[in-house]
């Protein structure tokens, strides 16, 4: 099932239970998949038109009155265009607004260039109080939503609308601020967020077929980071590779190395976008061009594993 369908189904269930949940869209209710909610909850679904800054502040006003607003748009139109509104009316004001960004990074594909954003996690993470969640699949999204609703404080969530691939099965339990331990290994720590977790699993398979053992952590909650899990793994392997669909500046690699440099200096490298301009293209071409494939993870892992410096 597409993530946007998982999302809207679970949100509908939560809205039936909790009459304080409201949703806002900026003319992307159809694209984002929230449209069915407008039929069932006409009073609690608000399409503000093409006015994202307005949407964020309306949500802040609703939150200040006890509602839990979910606002939606493509990543750059919330996490970039409405930055000051998020900073002042949401974060500084400590309002319970959930900001949902669709199609992060390379997943913008043919809308890329202008609609592509590799800096959303860095900017959101730098604001005070806001939690940052990078979703890998529909199971994780569905399991996370009750927590996302109940959380106190602002939150930013990014996911891929039309994705159908699943990594987790129904037994998965979402732990806010907790890393998902996917493999236990001793040679290399591999930490991946969002959809890069799919590539990380493939790379770990290949490394393991060559006799290396990989400690694989999935990170849904980039902020607050599960520092304990990162430190425990790095202490064991002494080599850490991160993988994210985001700029190398200020995202997962930033979060992990901020922790390690202060508490456990460790040899690190990143699979991430290295200051390269956004563009259009197919998903596979974009991933290759930005160095975000399982092969890229494998290659950087091998470099780290053979670096004895």
């Amino acid at each position: 099932m597409e993530l946007r369908k998982e999302y809207v189904n679970e949100l509908a269930r939560l809205m039936r239970e909790n009459d304080k949940i409201v949703i806002l869209d900026a003319d992307l209710a159809g694209a984002g998949g929230t449209k069915p909610l407008y039929k069932e909850f006409p009073d609690r679904c608000i399409d503000v038109g093409i006015a994202e800054a307005n949407m964020i502040c309306i949500a802040a006003g609703l939150a200040a009155s006890g509602f839990v607003p979910f606002v939606h748009s493509f990543v750059p139109f919330v996490a970039r265009r409405a930055l000051d509104q998020i900073a002042v009316s949401v974060c500084y004001s400590e309002q319970n607004v959930r900001i949902v960004g669709f199609d992060p990074g390379v997943h913008t594909t043919s809308n890329g260039g202008t609609h592509m954003s590799f800096e959303d996690i860095a900017t959101m993470r730098a604001f005070c109080n806001i939690a940052v969640v990078d979703i890998v699949d529909g199971v994780q999204l569905r399991k996370a939503l009750p927590y996302i609703t109940a959380h106190k404080g602002p939150m930013y969530i990014r996911f891929v609308r039309k994705q159908t691939d699943e990594l987790f099965d129904d037994s998965y339990e979402f732990g806010f601020g907790k890393a998902d331990k996917l493999r236990d290994g001793k040679d290399l720590t591999l930490i991946a967020s969002g959809t890069m977790l799919f590539d990380a699993v493939k790379a770990a398979d290949r490394l393991e077929s060559e006799g290396y053992s990989v400690d694989l952590l999935g990170i849904a909650t980039v902020k607050p980071l599960d520092e304990e899990a990162v430190l425990a793994s790095a202490r064991k392997t002494r080599r850490v590779l991160t993988a994210e669909n985001h700029s190398i500046h200020g995202g997962l690699y930033g979060a992990v190395t901020e922790t390690l440099s202060a508490k456990l200096p460790t040899l690190c490298d990143a699979v991430a976008v290295r200051d390269k301009i956004t563009q259009v293209g197919s998903l596979n071409d974009l991933k290759r061009d930005y160095g975000l494939t399982a092969d890229d993870i494998y290659a950087r892992a091998k470099q780290l594993l053979t670096n004895n410096g």
Binding site: V22, A53, C57, A60, G61, A64, P69, D84, V88
Partner: peptide, 25 residues
């Protein structure tokens, strides 16, 4: 004080949210 302000231009939007919340409540 019912709403934070200082970065100009945001208050009317926030007030829309407050008014809408009153209607819902």
């Amino acid at each position: 004080v019912d709403m934070t302000a200082g970065s100009l231009g945001q208050g009317l939007s926030c007030a829309c949210g407050l008014a809408l919340a009153n209607r819902l409540n």
